[in-house]
Design a protein around this nucleic acid. Structure first.
Length: 808
RNA sequence: GCCGCGGUGGCGGAAUCGGUAUACGCGACGGACUUAAAAUCCGUUGGGAAAAUUCCCUUGUGGGUUCGAGUCCCACCCGCGGCACCA
């Protein structure tokens, strides 16, 4: 009879659940095994399966090796798609989200994973986001959360702030209106405070080098100098990493938003109209447009304004150009067209002088270092020396200061949206009037000065009200601003009328600490009890997509460090070991998408072949971190493999099959090592090789083989296990061990090479000495033919593998 | 443009420290079983020459190091991912 996965899988899932066989045992070394929790977007797709099922193989093997494996799951449940679905399909975001969670849970169960459902969480649950809000308050109290005007994409027709994703080619995705950049008072986290540690601590992490490098580049530390120019009589600082090229600075460029412009605009700039229209235009462009390589670098010269180079005393023109960004460096640059390609193309376009100050044989622009030319008293020095000397010279004159700049910006955490955790802040006009600007945090809210009052911890959570109408409010405010019951509150400080913050938190805040909550998900006194944190954290292995290499992983590291500094945690890094899975492509080798019609539906595959076959095929198709195309026929290979195991269960003999002893030990070794390194594909091929040899296995051999297979095909192996009358659940067996001595071959194939070319292969005993090997090789008829009277120059012997005879 | 990763049969891929290239699987071809087909089982399967023993070629391209290179070095070509006027 053929194996019937549909019936068998459901049967065992029910039994495992009833008997709670995956409950964490009391003994053993703790092992926190984490997968990136899914966003409940609708259905579990094949990418989720690719993250979760090979990860589950790993967890199961660790468990059988005796670790207390903790493998929780939950849902990253706040976010924009819920709101979009709500508006499109007239279903409340909450209903939509929870319906999706229910469906996805069933699909997750169908994979047969060992998840501990008693610890399931969803970030949109008030019991969860109470602590997200609490974490916000910790940052606020530590001075790490602050308000600032930040430009946002704004659609003037919908009157709403748009996410980057909602801006399509500079237009609003809903109404097609041109999107503007508009400054809005928003909340930010001061992640820059932690950059040095975020950077240096990367070294100790067992993460892919690629991911570490991406974080490093994202932080983007660069050491340089701020140099003061005199512009129209006013001091203006520029940041440069190349003070050695100062003599080559032929103009300055200032960012269009730079407040410095106010100093000189009215009094000195002769082409004010041109300038203002340029600034207006620049404000419409997104940062991407401004900074795109293929777009021309635009700018407007400030007529009537000159800058004085502090080193050469030379007077040079000044431009406003949108390729200079306000938030990086000082928002102004000295342009050295001979030695910077962006300045070079700008200079070419505006016909500005290009002055070489670094000697090199190559064409301009030359961005490397070298000997200085045409640089006054610094001429002839090397770049490195000139940097020092020029710094010293300018520092003495108080015209320069060493500075470290970072590319990373502070973390913008407020969102003008409904489906998120409300920011636990109250704005009080009365408190501001009473205390004034001294001794109180204040901000502009609804156009007036207000004191910023954090919600009292005892009043958490600030519950997201159930709105019927969650369309944007207009004026770029969150839909929450329309609910007076929510916005109108009593100030916890003075007891007078006050207003609630209506922005919600970025979902990255919610997902930056969920791995802590799993340790103690039902606690309503603290975010997680210290004892539980100590029991499980930090995470021993974290498995998920490479698309989170920067944001999620960096934010989680930051929050961990903040909570540590507030005395709530005593470790430094949340994820000790990190691994990424690759991406599953459609059968055509393209990214899966509905429009291409190449989407693989895991539910259908499970129905056709069984969850075990899907799990195994995902493991087998290629290296885990590379992913690859789904081949609908490929899954038949692993399915046939399982069918063949199903057949040999009836050929199992009481006695051991001596012929299988060596390959058995080899297979145990290979599968054990490969799973540890997440090389699931080669682990499976080793089991296939074993099965190809294994006719009439002994009872113990069959047991061992089934246990090796059980992490991959948990339902199937449990069924065979029980069919053969073995006791208990296969999943509570110990992981098999092997004897290294018994994996060794007694007879090896000696490869005989003459001058590096294989000329013969001879079966010999592995115990032969080097001189015996040499004798055998030289006596071979096939070898003799190639040596044939030539003088032997050299013989190289690699033990138990190869001999290379080198002739004249 | 910069950074990172990769390029091996018809296809997915394997190959420890530089030591038998193409394991394992898919597909294809031939055979067994069957009235037939599916399923299953057995065999063949990198390319070329030859009746055959056998020989030559082959890991994107071209060079190099080495007794020996898929693996190391240099240059180039192609594909994928990330970042991007970052001064």
């Amino acid at each position: 009879m053929k194996y019937n996965p549909g019936r068998v899988e459901k049967k065992w899932q029910k039994i495992w659940d009833e008997q709670k066989i995956y409950d964490i045992p009391g003994k053993g070394k703790k092992f926190y095994h984490l997968v990136m929790f899914p966003y409940p977007s609708g259905d579990l797709h094949i990418g989720h399966w690719y993250n979760f099922s090979p990860a589950d193989v790993y967890a199961r093997k660790k468990r059988m090796e005796g670790s207390r494996v903790f493998s929780p799951i939950g849902f990253d449940a706040f976010g924009l798609p819920a709101e979009n679905a709500a508006i499109k399909r007239e279903i409340h975001p909450e209903t939509w989200t929870y319906e999706n969670i229910e469906r996805m849970k069933k699909q997750l169960v169908s994979m047969g994973p060992i998840y501990d459902w008693s610890r399931e969480l969803a970030t949109c649950d008030p019991k969860y986001y109470k602590w997200t809000q609490w974490i916000f308050l910790q940052l606020f109290k530590a001075g790490l959360a602050y308000r600032k005007k930040v430009p946002a994409n704004f659609c003037p027709s919908c009157n709403t702030v748009l996410a980057n994703e909602q801006v399509v080619e500079g237009e609003c995705e809903r109404c097609g209106c041109e999107v503007l950049q508009r400054d809005i008072e928003q909340w930010l986290f001061h992640i820059r405070e932690y950059v040095d540690e975020l950077l240096s601590a990367l070294n100790d992490l067992d993460w892919p080098e690629k991911t570490k490098l991406m974080q490093k580049n994202w932080i983007g530390k660069s050491e340089g100098v701020e140099v003061e120019f005199s512009v129209g009589g006013h001091p203006l600082r520029v940041f440069t990493t190349r003070p050695d090229t100062l003599f080559g600075a032929t103009y300055l460029v200032i960012s269009p938003e730079h407040p410095f412009l106010d100093n000189i605009k009215r009094t000195q700039v002769q082409n004010l109209e041109e300038l203002e229209s340029y600034v207006m235009k620049a404000r419409k462009k997104s940062e991407k447009e401004r900074t795109s390589e293929d777009k021309e670098k635009t700018g407007v010269r400030l007529e009537g304004v000159l800058a004085v180079n502090p080193l050469s005393g030379e007077e040079i023109p000044v431009f406003v150009g949108d390729y200079v960004l306000l938030h990086y460096g000082t928002g102004a640059i000295m342009a050295v067209p001979a030695h910077d390609k962006r300045d070079y193309s700008f200079a070419k376009k505006h016909n500005l002088p290009i002055k070489r100050v670094i000697h090199s044989a190559s064409d301009l622009p030359y961005e490397g270092e070298g000997d200085l030319v045409a640089s006054g008293e610094f001429t002839g020095m090397k770049s490195s020396e000139a940097k020092e000397k020029i710094n010293q010279y300018l520092e003495k004159k108080k015209k320069a200061e060493k500075k470290v700049n970072y590319k990373i910006r502070d973390w913008l955490v407020s969102r003008q949206r409904y489906w998120g955790a409300p920011i636990p802040i109250i704005y009080c006009k009365n408190c501001f009037q009473k205390k004034g600007r001294e001794g109180v945090d204040y901000t502009i809210f609804e156009g007036e000065d207000h004191a910023i009052i954090p919600v009292e911890e005892k009043d958490l959570p600030v519950v997201l009200p159930y709105l019927e109408d969650f369309t944007p409010s207009g004026e770029g405010r969150s839909p929450l601003s329309k609910d007076k019951n929510f916005t109108e509150v009593v100030c916890p400080r003075c007891g007078k009328e006050a207003k609630r913050e209506t922005d919600t938190l970025d979902t990255f805040v919610c997902s930056s600490w969920y791995y802590l909550r799993y340790a103690d998900p039902h606690n309503d006194k603290v975010f997680a009890d210290k004892k539980n944190i100590k029991e499980w954290l930090p995470v021993d292995i974290y498995i998920g997509g490479a698309e989170h290499s920067v944001l999620h992983l960096l934010y989680s590291r930051f929050i961990t460090k903040v909570l540590r500094d507030q005395g709530h945690l005593n470790f430094h890094e949340p994820f000790l070991k990190l691994r990424h899975q690759g991406m599953i492509l459609g059968p055509d080798g393209q990214k899966m998408s509905k429009s291409k019609g190449n989407v693989v539906d895991p539910d259908k595959e499970v129905e056709k072949h069984g969850a075990d076959a899907v799990r195994m095929y995902l493991c087998f198709m290629g290296p885990y971190d590379q992913g690859g195309p789904w081949n609908p026929r490929g899954i038949l290979g692993v399915k046939r493999f399982l069918e063949r195991v199903w057949k040999i269960k009836d050929d199992v003999k009481e006695e051991e099959n001596k012929k299988l002893e060596k390959i058995m030990h080899q297979t145990v070794k290979k599968v054990t090592e490969d799973i540890e390194e997440l090389r699931f594909n080669t682990a499976i091929s080793a089991m296939m090789t074993f099965l190809n040899e294994a006719k009439e296995p002994g009872k113990e051999q069959m047991k061992t083989f089934l246990v090796l297979l059980s992490p991959f095909a948990p339902h199937f192996t449990e069924e065979v296990w029980s069919y053969l009358g073995f006791k208990g659940s296969i999943h509570n067996q110990n992981w098999p061990t092997y004897d290294l001595a018994k994996t060794k071959e007694e007879v090896i194939t000696l490869v005989v090479q003459v001058n590096g070319k294989v000329r013969d292969k001879i079966e010999i005993s592995a115990t032969k000495s080097e001189s015996q090997v040499k004798k055998i090789a030289l006596e071979s008829e096939k070898t003799k033919k190639w040596i044939d009277g030539k003088k032997i120059k050299k013989v190289v012997i690699i033990k138990n593998r190869l001999i290379n005879i080198v002739t004249e």
